[in-house]
């Protein structure tokens, strides 16, 4: 790309109110502002065969993400950054409950990709107290696998979560997950297996990953937070991670790596997840997402 081309691209991006708050790589794969629906963020469903009873317990309690105006009983709708709507991922009101929304793509070239979003989180405002330790975590993961002609193809799953609180302690740090738990055959099937990669086990502290985010003064005030994660689909290594004014050193970061699976070629999946620490729903709100690539 010539300097002039890049200068023109940047000028167009910065003059576009929908994209100016992002720093996308040259090709925008998707731009979701949730004023045009769910934009492909659907419920993650666990694998099963013959009966839904064969689904792993962790997946069986997930529900659909919603389009939300962030409505609060005391202050009304908060709204998104420049529309009324954001995506809401809500857990159930059970300590440790999780929920996940997923966007499923495939890729056409192995190279750098960039995931950017504006997000916030709050517990359901069922009590008139600050509730800052009620949401356990919010996070994201990618689920990736190379093409069918690539050599040595692993399934690679970078995970990052903001561990806000754990067992009532206000932890506030980023964690990654380098290993999953073993696969199990679903219902004894030779074709379908499953693994619960969001089990509570295996999270590691990101070195230097302590961060205090803006958590406004009652449970019904929210502020949007910027996040960026860069990943190289060629080397299958993380490149950069930024949250608001902080850029984190990823030299200690490792994604989950497991042997490639026979059906998942060129898979490019993105997941957003939330966990609650208490018997209260945790809400993970996403104003907008921009996924881009250098191709």
């Amino acid at each position: 790309m010539t300097d002039m081309t890049e200068a023109l691209r940047m000028a167009l991006l910065r003059a576009n109110p929908d994209l100016s708050r992002f720093d996308p790589l040259p090709r925008i794969i998707s731009h979701d502002d949730f004023s045009r629906g769910h934009c492909g963020w659907s419920q993650l469903v666990g694998n099963y065969e013959d009966s839904l009873d064969t689904m792993l317990d962790g997946y069986s309690r997930y529900t659909s993400a919603m389009l939300s105006t962030l409505p609060h009983w005391d202050a009304g709708s908060h709204g998104g950054m420049d529309s009324s709507y954001a995506l809401k991922i809500a857990t159930r009101a059970t300590p440790g409950a999780q929920n996940v929304a997923i966007k499923r793509h495939t890729f056409r070239r192995r190279g750098p990709i960039r995931f950017e979003m504006y997000f916030t989180f709050k517990p359901e405002a069922t009590e008139l107290v600050l509730s800052e330790t009620d949401v356990r975590s919010v996070g994201f993961l990618f689920d990736l696998q190379g093409g069918d002609r690539d050599a040595g193809t692993d399934r690679v799953m970078p995970h990052l979560r903001f561990l806000n609180a754990l067992d009532g302690a206000h932890v506030q740090k980023w964690q990654y997950k380098p290993e999953t738990i073993p696969f199990v055959a679903v219902n004894g099937s030779s074709k379908i297996a499953s693994h619960y990669h969001l089990s509570p086990k295996g999270w590691q502290d990101l070195p230097g990953g302590e961060q205090k985010l803006c958590y406004n003064e009652i449970p019904t005030k929210v502020n949007w937070t910027y996040l960026r994660f860069d990943f190289d689909l060629d080397s299958m290594q993380a490149l950069a991670f930024q949250c608001n004014d902080r850029e984190f050193d990823l030299s200690g970061f490792e994604p989950i790596r497991i042997p490639g699976m026979k059906n998942l070629w060129c898979m490019l999946n993105f997941c957003l997840f939330a966990e609650t620490d208490v018997a209260k729903r945790a809400f993970f709100y996403v104003d907008s997402v921009c996924i881009s690539g250098d191709f």
Binding site: Q43, L52, D53, M55, S60, T63, S64, M66, L67, S68, T69, P71, K88, A90, R92
Partner: peptide
């Protein structure tokens, strides 16, 4: 939207809330 999937309802049962204004 899937509100409840493969859950056995008994007693006082309800789905999760759905925000759909």
């Amino acid at each position: 939207a899937i509100l409840t999937r493969n859950e056995t309802w008994s007693g006082a049962a309800a789905s999760e809330p759905c925000e759909c204004g």
